[in-house]
Design a protein around this nucleic acid. Sequence first.
RNA 1: GCAGACGUAGCUCAGUUGGUUAGAGCGUCGGAUUGUGGCUCCGAAGGUCGUUGGUUCAACUCCAACCGUCUGUACCA
Length: 491
Amino acid sequence: MAKPKTFKLKARLPRGFVDRSAADIRASDAMLAKIRAVYEHYGFDPVETPAFEYTDCLGKFLPDTDRPNAGVFSVQDDDEQWMSLRYDLTAPLARHVAENINEIQLPYRTYRAGWVFRNEKPGPGRFRQFMQFDADTIGAPGVQADAEMCMMMADTMEALGIPRGSYVIRVNNRKVLDGVMEAIGLGGEENAERRLTVLRAIDKLDKFGPDGVRLLLGEGRKDESGDFTKGAELDGEAIDLILGYMAGTTRLDTEGQAELDQMAEIFSACDYDADRIKIDPSVVRGLEYYTGPVYEAELLFPVTNEKGEVVQFGSVGGGGRYDGLVKRFTGRDVPATGFSIGVSRLMTALKNLGKLGREEVLAPVLVTVMDGGTEALGRYQKMTQTLRAAGIRAEMYQGNWKKFGNQLKYADRRGCPLAIIQGSDEREQGVVQIKDLIEGKRLSGEITDNVTWRESRPAQETVAEGDIVAAVTRMLTAQAEDRDKASESGE
RNA sequence: GCAGACGUAGCUCAGUUGGUUAGAGCGUCGGAUUGUGGCUCCGAAGGUCGUUGGUUCAACUCCAACCGUCUGUACCA
């Protein structure tokens, strides 16, 4: 007979998406709780919006295009309206505020965490679905609101265990950049395109350094694969002016500069010095909707990736003032400022710093099954419930009970601390065996032949059925003490 | 999007100037051991060689296109 050809479906994760492990979920939950605590402390309240919005509310893409999928994931509703997965949390918030403007008390201080989606090429540490945690103050026109955001970002970094000096909040103002553009003669509508090129070049200071920026402002730059990026083609004088501005040697007295000075004053009044918040002329941020102060959180410690290479991590969050966003819906001025933390990215970095994954969740105590009869199963389950009622994480083996070896193998691989064993012998005597799997593993190093290993039944004790809770508690406590001792001497 | 590198078992990779039946390690499953994890030994399953076409008596191997992955770069609300 010919081999039956079975068509197996290939199991594959969509490009740019990840599955999260138990450890990752627990670590990010812990992180989110710390961030939330800071925001709450500052007087912000949560609000949540859905993952989908009508495409026009997200502020891009005219109905002209066939399928508005450039950068966003979009689908057409059954009434033919285009909907998109949100690509940030700011545009949906603006929609929410505009829609409920009569009920919302301004200034509105709010935070929210959520998944956002970007339909673009994924890279190392860049995914098409990732989590952001935002805070915004809406209806606050003054720079004191922006300054508060910067200080809250700094506090959040420290709440997450990033020591002062290992991060910095860099602050700039879009109006200052506008002034620079004026100064090099790139003001006005006709120069909009070149202004963008120049701003992008300025934004790349931390990536390519002053020399790289000089190339991008001038003729252009060739990358490592030999691909050429066209530059802004400015003349030498303009380039010198921009580089001077970025180095902090050229100062323009503009409205933006006055705002920056005001913020600096607030920072120093609150003792947030340059080791936490720093004015930095090279901060640009997104080119779309920011209108005033912009700020960015950057990590300063080296981050190594899974391959052991040191990578330039860059920004883990940022934000700014977006005075026009709500106005698009309401027609009336609703000034706002806020920032966003890239939770997924920050988590990668924190893992690196050893600030995550410390508190391991202990695997459950395993109640093994020696007898699959209905009555016996009830007894095993009852034992398990007794442990649970005493606050002990426990489970009964749910696989094929007939292969007892597999039950212990399962317990071993899960990292179970203890296994409870009751066969017919123990049952008759009204006792159970409690096996210390941690201690047993240690002893296994000294035993080389299998018969001895099986017959010696290492690290196992017999206790009366009624004493299970007390015995399990005692053994778990002893294990916990051993772990503490090991981590003290180990580090 | 542009440029480059790479696609062979679940994973990591061998595979000779093109030659007949495509291999290894790890992992998985079974057994040695129907009531005891680890070690050891024995055995098994698992492949459209990324896809399609071309050159050839003969293609995993050479050529082309496409698809996918990775790296850099561009864009990034």
